[in-house]
Design a protein around this nucleic acid. Sequence first.
DNA 1: TTTTCAAGAAATCACGAAATTTTTGTATAT
DNA 2: ATATACAAAAATTTCGTGATTTCTTGAAAA
Lengths: 227, 227
Amino acid sequence: MIDTHAPSQNDVYLDMRNRLISGAFSPGQKLMPNRLKADYNTSASTIREILFRMSCEGFVDFQEQRGFRCPQSSEQKLLELTHLRILLECEGAAGSIRNGDVEWEAQLNASHHKLAHIESKMKSSDDITPFVTVWSRSDWEFHRTLLSACGSSLLIETHKGIYDRFRQQVVSELRTFGFRAETIPEHKAILDAALQRDIPGCTKAIEDHLRVYRDHVAGKVQGFSAG
Amino acid sequence: MIDTHAPSQNDVYLDMRNRLISGAFSPGQKLMPNRLKADYNTSASTIREILFRMSCEGFVDFQEQRGFRCPQSSEQKLLELTHLRILLECEGAAGSIRNGDVEWEAQLNASHHKLAHIESKMKSSDDITPFVTVWSRSDWEFHRTLLSACGSSLLIETHKGIYDRFRQQVVSELRTFGFRAETIPEHKAILDAALQRDIPGCTKAIEDHLRVYRDHVAGKVQGFSAG
DNA sequence: TTTTCAAGAAATCACGAAATTTTTGTATAT
DNA sequence: ATATACAAAAATTTCGTGATTTCTTGAAAA
C-alpha cells in the first residue's frame, strides 16, 4: 500500500482481512474508519463498507452505533472453530478421495511437498517468525487442495471461512501461528491416507492433526512451542 | 413498511432478507439500491450497505462495478446446500442429544407440536399458500430447537445461514416451499429419535427427511406436490 | 474514596452529489 | 447483413458533510 493511487475496494478488503487474520490488531481493539483510511488512501465511508462486509464473515465484531472491533479471543471460540473445521475438512477430504482424479493427486502431492520443505526448515530453526507468513500460505494451500476435488464449492467456501477464523483465533492465542514440530508427520499422514484413497484413515489423520486444539482448550496440553 | 419514519437499518435488513428467502425477487433479477430505496424510505447508500452484508451471507450475488443480483437457482446449488445442511444438522442434533437437558426436550416437544398442528391442516387443504408463511417459521423453529442445545453457537449460526439459503433455493425451484405430506411422519421420526437420545436414529431420520432434495436433483423423484 | 452528573470531544450514521464505469442505442463501414 | 465505433444514458462507486449518538473528562455531592 505505498502507491499513491487509490487501491480498488477489493484490494483494501483483502489487505484488511489479512491483517485481521495475521494478528495485526489486538483482540478487542477498536477499528475506526477515520483512522484506517490513512493506511489505504481512501475515505472513511469506503473503510466502513469493507468493515461491514467482514463483520458478516465473523472477522470483526460490529455493534450498532458502537462501531467495529477486532474480535475478542476465547477458548470457547477456538473450541467451536476447531470442531467445525474438523467436521467440514473430513467431509471435504472424503469427497475429494471419492471424486479426485490423478490431477488432484498431483496437486496434493505438490502442495504437500512445498509445505514439508518449509516445515523442515522451521523445525531446525530457533526463530520461526521469518517463516510464519510463507508457512501460513503453504498450510492453507495444502488443506485447500485436500478439499478441492470434493465437488461442492459451497463446502469449500464454508470451510475457507472457518479455516480463516480458526487461524485468526490461533494467532491471537498462540503466537506460533499454530506450527508445531508434530505437524510434519501429521500432514504426512493426511497425505498418505488421501493418496491411498483411505477415507477412514484420512478422517482420523485430520482429527489427530486438529485434536490438539481441542485438548489445548480442555487444558490437557501444556507445551505449544515449536521444535 | 408503511410508516413514514425511516426504519432502522436492521429492520430493512431483516425485511430484505425475508423477501429474498421467500422468493419476492425472481432469480437473476437486478437489485438496484436506487429502486429499492423507495420501498423503505431510506437512501440508496443504506440499501447498498445492506445488500453488501447479504452478499457475504450468500443471499445475493455481487459483482464489482456490476451491482447486485438475486442469485440464480440451480440444481447443483440445491444439491450442495442439502448436503451441507444434512452434515451440520446431524452434527448439531447429535450434540444436543448429548448435552440437552429436560428444558431442551420440552422446547423440542413444543415446537414439534406447533409444527405438526400446521402440517396436519395443510395436508387436508387444497391450497397451501395461506399456510406457507407460518409453516416456514414453524419448520425453522423446530429445526433450530433441535440444534439449540448442541453447545456451539458457531455451529448454530453456520447452520442458520445454510438453512436459509436452502430455503431460498427450494422456494425458487419448488413453489411449495418444501412442504410435502411426507414431512409429517419425517418430523415425527426426528422428534422421537431425539427424545430417545438415539443419535444414529436421529441422524438417519434427518437424512431421510432431506434426502428427497438430493434425489430430486438426481432426477429420481417426480412428484413434489403437497398432499 | 466512591458515585453522579453534565459539558465537551469524538465517533457513527444516513444522505446526496460528483466521478467513474458499464450498458444501451445509433450511425458508419466492411 | 454483420461488425465496429462512437455517443448518450444509466448504474455503480466514491467521498465529504451535517445530524445524532456515544464516549470521555472532570468537578460536585454522597
